[in-house]
């Protein structure tokens, strides 16, 4: 073989040379080329003099704390989720209260000439149902992703955990509001959903395939996905009915 070019030696150094074996055989037999390659290795080793300083163990989390506030707010499908949590909570309580009030009011309306407040209450009721429907849809997505993941080796569920954690807080609000309004069916499903979300949120972020299978089986055994779908479908039916 002819003497390899400087470029071929550089590519050999990086393990990207075409015809690597031929070049290596040549180096073994040619002292001149071997010396040239040794010189190249020494020069490239000298470049490594500026090692980056070590970062702490939790460096990724530190960066996230700096970056998170600068990211644009979450883009959601429906506007109620853009409201701050406390405003949302207040709105829900008011909406449930007004919903119940409006139901009674609608019952009396046939005997009373005043129907001025009924449309406003209906709007609030509808907002609530849309918000709960959206919450259920998001919860279903988390549960579905978990159920449909095929575990091979270790499974990283940190993304699902983060979303489950977010959903727990809003779930609690809806559950309490549903219980206060006497809607025990919805409150009971939301209670089960909360337990499933908490289980996901509190699992280790990386689990072995067997641990993951156990978690998935527990979630599936509760039948929560089916129950959430039923409630979600009912709510959406009511929203459409109210709208018409």
């Amino acid at each position: 073989m002819r003497h390899p070019s400087e470029e071929e030696l550089v590519m050999l150094f990086y393990g990207e040379a075409d015809g690597r074996e031929a070049i290596e055989n040549h180096l073994a037999a040619c002292p001149e080329c071997r010396a040239a390659y040794a010189e190249l290795e020494a020069a490239l080793a000298a470049v490594d003099v500026n090692e980056p300083p070590e970062r702490p163990e939790d460096y990724g989390a530190q960066v996230w704390r700096r970056v998170a506030p600068l990211l644009p707010p979450k883009r959601e499908k429906r506007w109620p989720w853009l409201m701050p949590a406390f405003a949302m909570a207040a709105m829900l309580v008011v909406a449930f209260g007004l919903g119940r009030f409006s139901a009674q009011f609608r019952g009396q309306a046939t005997q009373s000439p005043s129907t001025v407040t009924a449309p406003a209450a209906q709007v609030r009721e509808r907002i609530l149902m849309v918000a709960v429907g959206d919450h259920l849809e998001r919860s279903q997505m988390v549960l579905l992703e978990l159920v449909n993941t095929h575990a091979a080796g270790n499974v990283d569920i940190s993304a699902e955990q983060a979303r489950a954690q977010d959903l727990v807080a809003s779930n609690r609000l809806y559950r309490e509001a549903a219980a206060r309004s006497g809607d025990t069916g919805v409150a009971s499903v939301l209670d089960e959903l909360e337990r499933a979300l908490l289980e996901i949120a509190h699992s280790p972020s990386k689990v072995s395939s067997s641990e993951f299978e156990e978690l998935r089986k527990r979630v599936e055994a509760q039948g929560i996905l089916f129950k959430v779908r039923v409630i979600d479908t009912k709510l959406r039916g009511q929203v459409s009915g109210n709208h018409l």
């Binding site: 940190s158 979303r163 977010d166």
Partner: peptide, 15 residues
Amino acid sequence: GDSDAFRVLVERHSR
């Protein structure tokens, strides 16, 4: 548009 999901990527690749 889910900015929360970005956390996984930030924590994994910061170093």
